[in-house]
């Protein structure tokens, strides 16, 4: 739930990057962090395992500056993608104002994407959100790989509720900001 602090003139929103393991959630945040001007950059906080897999979450505060005197801040989180951390994902998803579902476009990851998407729908419903109204966008990542499924196929299997979706190659920065812009606007429009 977004927080609007009238006295401090601040608007805070929480955006969570969700998706199966190794789909590129952390990469999205690393690219965003890398492109924030140094004078306004906060640290990217990562709670990872020894093998650099996300253990709890990555966290990046994003300051969009002042609008009509109000400072707008988004807090970007990733969830750990591995099956083992299902309850941790529930914890991180708590209080989210918007979700980016990062799908791994490779053919052999389709089942993992579907499982993760079903879990997301279940968790959001349990938190009292209405899926059709909740701000969500989808990112098809790794579209440069020869094993990537074509967008219409991914649409048919993954985007049945027809949310805005973007093709991406996060590791090269492609599609990362297009996705962020779309989810940010959806969140602001819900305030």
């Amino acid at each position: 739930m977004a927080l609007i602090n009238v006295a401090a003139k601040e608007i805070h929103g929480k955006i969570v990057y969700y998706g199966p393991g190794l789909c590129g959630k952390t990469t999205n945040l690393q690219v965003i962090h890398g492109r924030i001007p140094q004078n306004g950059r906060s640290d990217l906080l990562s709670i990872a395992t020894e093998t650099e897999r996300t253990l709890f979450f990555d966290f990046l505060p994003l300051d969009l500056g002042k609008v009509h005197g109000f400072t707008i801040r988004f807090h970007l989180y990733t969830v750990p993608g591995q099956i083992l951390y299902e309850r941790t994902r529930v914890a991180v998803l708590n209080g989210a104002d918007g979700v980016v579902f990062v799908a791994d476009a490779q053919r052999d990851r389709l089942a993992d994407n579907l499982q993760s998407l079903r879990e997301l729908a279940h968790n959001l419903t349990n938190q009292g959100k209405r899926l059709t109204e909740f701000p969500m966008v989808m990112q098809y990542n790794k579209m440069d790989l020869p094993t990537a499924l074509p967008t219409p196929v991914l649409d048919r299997y993954l985007n049945t509720i027809k949310v805005p979706r973007f093709e991406a190659v996060a590791v090269q920065g492609r599609g990362v900001f297009e996705t962020l812009r779309a989810i940010s606007k959806l969140v602001v429009n819900k305030l």
Binding site: I72, G173, R174, F177, L180, R181, K185, N189
Partner: peptide, 13 residues
């Protein structure tokens, strides 16, 4: 706010 988001991310990729 929406205009600001567009402006900030306008260059995109």
């Amino acid at each position: 706010a929406v205009d600001t988001i567009d402006l900030i991310f306008s260059q995109d990729d």
